[in-house]
Amino acid sequence: MKQLTIQSSRHSYPVVMEAGLRFRLNRWLKKEYSSILVVTDDHVAERYLQDVLDSLGAENIFSYIVPAGEASKSIEQYDRLQTKAIESGLDRKSLLVALGGGVIGDLGGFVAATFMRGIDYIQIPTTILAHDSSVGGKVAINHELGKNLIGCFYPPAAVLYDTETLESLPYQEVRSGYAEILKEGLISNSSLVEELWTLSLKGISSFQLENHLEAGIKVKADIVEADEKEAGVRKYLNLGHTLGHALESTLGYGKVTHGEAVANGLLFAFHVSEDVNQHQLPFSELHGWMKKNEYPIINIEEANIPKIIKSMKSDKKSVSGRIQMVLLNKVGEPTVQNLDDSSVEAYMRTYIERMKKL
């Protein structure tokens, strides 16, 4: 078992990683709850919902299943979940359990944060990608004009990571999750980056995966403890996300995974960083790593540049109409730059030309 403790302004909470943890959930409930609502999606429900319901063993326990995919992070599903909570008789001493990947964690966490002005919730992540989203207390739903625009900061009571659930992940979800682990390495752990460059994601062992998850969570934990509300260094966790979120929005949620979009966003951030900071970054290494591990390389059409820029400006990180990007001086040394539309457009055009030559 691996365990870390995260300190938030509201309370501290454990992040626990252990095989088979879904069968031993009761030991991590630190108080008696009047009722429990388990939220999951239709893919995860088939495999793990009954295990979790049996493990919790509460009398007043309910479940709600949403369709799998990013499209469920919507105001419609949020409303249906609130209705389910009300009709099930949940009160301020109830618990919500988010069983699934980042979509379920964000959606369920936002419901918990706003139901009766806030009830406890527990994250039970079932994807690699969710190692990032489950820690730090960011909860949100999407708007058609941008990703995660409606949400708040609301830390969980616990993050309980059953690593056995990762063994059933399709390969697309493995590479999606590893884009976030790479991002965490790029902002503060150069040795992790060097290890990942040589890694074939189709050949990782359970031992390697647990170590990489632990390394990524430690990076995230250190940053969110220093800056819970994203006033300073927490912004560095958005490396690759400015373009990544815009690609998800403009392509249509679910067309590419979050991690696939972020990986492409990292490439673009490297490209911009090299010009702004006049320092070479491992652009070719990142591109080669993506190709080796079968990430989709998203071709940006020149005709779509205005639409992508509009989406980037709608991002919650934009400041006074300028696009805020996290860049790198070098691996392990992130910085934040505010760019105007014309600069971003110029960088996109040179990026398109650079990618054509690869």
Results as ranks from 00 to 15, higher is better:
Asn304Gln: 15
Leu196Ser: 07
Ala246Tyr: 00
Glu180Ser: 11
Gln324Arg: 15
Cys152Gln: 14
Glu70His: 06
Lys255Gly: 02
Val326Asn: 04
Ile223Pro: 06
Gly105Lys: 01
Val159Cys: 01
Asp51Glu: 13
Glu184Tyr: 15
Arg117Val: 07
Ser318Leu: 06
Ser311Met: 12
Arg234Gln: 08
Trp28Val: 05
Ser72Gly: 07
Thr335Ser: 13
Val174Phe: 01
Tyr253Trp: 00
Glu59Pro: 11
Lys292Glu: 09
Tyr295Pro: 05
Glu230Gln: 04
Glu144Ala: 14
Met312Cys: 07
Lys229Ser: 09
Glu76Cys: 08
Lys229Pro: 07
Glu302Trp: 12
Asp106Cys: 05
Gly109Ser: 09
Lys291Pro: 09
Gly89Tyr: 12
Gln208Trp: 04
Tyr121Gln: 01
Ser249Val: 12
Ile223Gln: 08
Tyr161Leu: 08
Ser284Glu: 11
Leu4Thr: 07
Glu210Gln: 13
Glu194Asn: 13
Leu196Asp: 03
Tyr78Ala: 07
Arg27Pro: 00
Lys138Ile: 08
Ala179Arg: 12
Ala68Glu: 15
Gly332Phe: 02
Glu18Met: 08
Leu327Phe: 00
Tyr161Ser: 05
Asp340Thr: 12
Glu225Trp: 12
His287Phe: 14
Ile305Phe: 08
Gly244Glu: 01
Tyr236Val: 10
Glu294Lys: 14
Ser318Gly: 06
Tyr171Arg: 09
Glu210Pro: 04
Glu301Asp: 15
Leu129Ser: 12
Ala45Asp: 05
His131Cys: 14
Ile6Pro: 03
His131Phe: 15
Ile65Pro: 07
